[in-house]
């Protein structure tokens, strides 16, 4: 019994450390002045600056657009890839899978640097398009990995049954295959979304002067020192994430989904 109590205390401590920096940011977003040392007095000033900051709002919007577009494209490409891998012969499957995993295990700087070389070699100008292509590129293997298990656990006789009942290839794909894969495709899409929203290093390499994502913008602001407008932004992002995750949690809880589903939320 004692061990459980110490375990709880320890776990609470870890949670505290995990959330302390976030709450620290939120706390000072309401402080007047321009430092994160001492809380002066309560103010909405930084939120007002934030909502008047057309540039930052545009960047926020563009970041979300980029994430949605790239995850959508990566989901289509990744689902096709997963189906292709599943239908390949054993030997090819292994080769395809190892190529698939290279981008997952590669450090971000390597991906960024090599994509930079690639775009330059192709004579592609850096900007929104290069960032979009890069995000699609590094999201594809994640989608593949999320869809593949669903393909494996799918009963192959389902396809036989559909064909037996007279379905043509397109009908088999849209009526049987896609519905069976939907959970995997969805979690692949959300993973791709998180990867895209969270990415800094790759974007930093392949973004030119014209286009900036939120991560890159925060980086350049943070390098110049403390700016409580960033705190205000963090607060809004935190509560938005809280809302999303909360809704997700209660939805899955109500459906009584299995534990590892939540793993889809991770990176």
């Amino acid at each position: 019994m004692k061990k459980t109590i110490w375990g709880r205390v320890y776990f609470g401590l870890v949670l505290l450390i995990l959330y302390l920096p976030i709450f620290y940011l939120i706390y000072f977003s309401f402080s007047s002045g321009s430092s994160m040392d001492h809380f002066r007095h309560f103010t909405w000033e930084h939120y007002q600056t934030l909502f008047a900051d057309k540039r930052l709002l545009a960047i926020l919007l563009e970041t979300i657009m980029l994430a949605l577009l790239s995850s959508l494209a990566a989901t289509v490409l990744g689902t096709f890839g997963a189906i292709a891998i599943q239908r390949s012969k054993e030997a090819y499957r292994k080769i395809l899978l190892s190529f698939n995993n290279i981008l997952i295990v590669s450090p971000d700087v390597i991906i960024g640097a090599s994509f930079l070389i690639l775009f330059t070699a192709l004579g592609f100008s850096l900007g929104f398009a290069s960032v979009l292509l890069s995000h699609i590129a590094f999201s594809v293997p994640i989608v593949v990995l999320m869809v593949l298990p669903k393909l494996k656990e799918m009963d192959n006789s389902l396809i036989d049954a559909a064909q037996d009942l007279g379905a043509n290839n397109y009908q088999v794909f849209s009526q049987v295959l896609l519905p069976a894969l939907t959970p995997g495709i969805l979690s692949g899409f959300f993973m791709a979304l998180t990867y895209s929203l969270d990415d800094f290093a790759v974007t930093f390499f392949v973004t030119g002067n014209g286009f900036t994502t939120l991560s890159v913008e925060i980086y350049s602001r943070a390098r110049q020192g403390i700016d409580l407008e960033v705190n205000a932004l963090s607060t809004i992002i935190f509560f938005f994430v809280l809302l999303l995750v909360g809704v997700y949690y209660f939805l899955t809880k109500r459906q009584g989904k299995k534990a590892n589903k939540l793993g889809g939320l991770l990176r």
Binding site: L197, S215, I218, V230, S234, V241, V245, R267
Partner: peptide, 9 residues
């Protein structure tokens, strides 16, 4: 949940 807050923040 904290992993969803941007690393740079």
């Amino acid at each position: 949940l904290p992993t969803w807050i941007n690393l740079l923040l």
